[in-house]
Amino acid sequence: MADLAETGIKTEVKTSRSIAASVFYGATRQATAAIIVPALGLLFWEVSVAAGWFSGRLMPPPSRVLATLWTLLKSGELFNHIGITTARVFFGFVLGTVTATIAGAVTGYFGLARRLIDPSLQALRSIPSIAWVPLFILWFGIFEASKVALIAVGVFFPVYLGVSGAILSVDRKIVEVGRIFRLSGFTLVRRVMMPAVFPAYVIALRSGLGLGWMFVVAAEFMGASEGLGYLLVDGQQLGKPDQIMAAIITFAIIGKVTDSLLMAAAAPFLTWQDSYRREG
């Protein structure tokens, strides 16, 4: 009997290990598969420009884009642009998030406020945000204020929708537990509603941040002398596609980095989540 049990355990260990291994190799294989096509494309472009089949004037090969990126980096110019753009996104994001969180919390919690305010906000939401640009320039001038305002508008709506939707969908059953323990008003909000909406709030912040990076480009298109958006416009006006691509790559990297930072900041508060990807 003991032998049987032992062999049983051994096989179990073996299978779970081989499952883990196959999952790992599966993931690696998938990542490799995903890289093949773009890598071959870049390689082809590099080779064909080097061989003189194409001039690469409008579409510079990867090596030239990297060289431009390196030059910008070395001169410190790139950091300056990144700093300016990040600061704009930061202030726009904070402004948009704070107002959206308050508005979302109020309309999600109070039925009367929802009936009064939500329809107007939904109507404003259907306006393409770029359409605000001329008005914002008239109101706030062409410098920082109008840019931050535009970014804030872009951040506002996804965060607002996320917050008010999350509050509306808090499980009645869990709220009842709070009520049984005689929590009400702000205590109920703090101890039950806020933790319950937190996961959805993080997702709302992430989509808000994504839109923030989108809108900073639009904002910097409307007249900036610094920033990554300025690099784009400058590259277009002076015919420097390598500079445009360098700026695009930088956008991709810092967009991803800020999103990861946001997730990393939220992760310690979400270990309790019983989701498919976190199991175990």
Binding site: K173, E176, R182, P195, W272
Partner: peptide, 20 residues
């Protein structure tokens, strides 16, 4: 008329707060 400190209710489901 409202939840009382000396009365408690155990529901059909545990209804534990998942974040605690």
């Amino acid at each position: 008329r409202q939840p009382h400190p000396l009365i408690n209710l155990i529901f059909q489901e545990p209804r534990l707060l998942p974040w605690l």
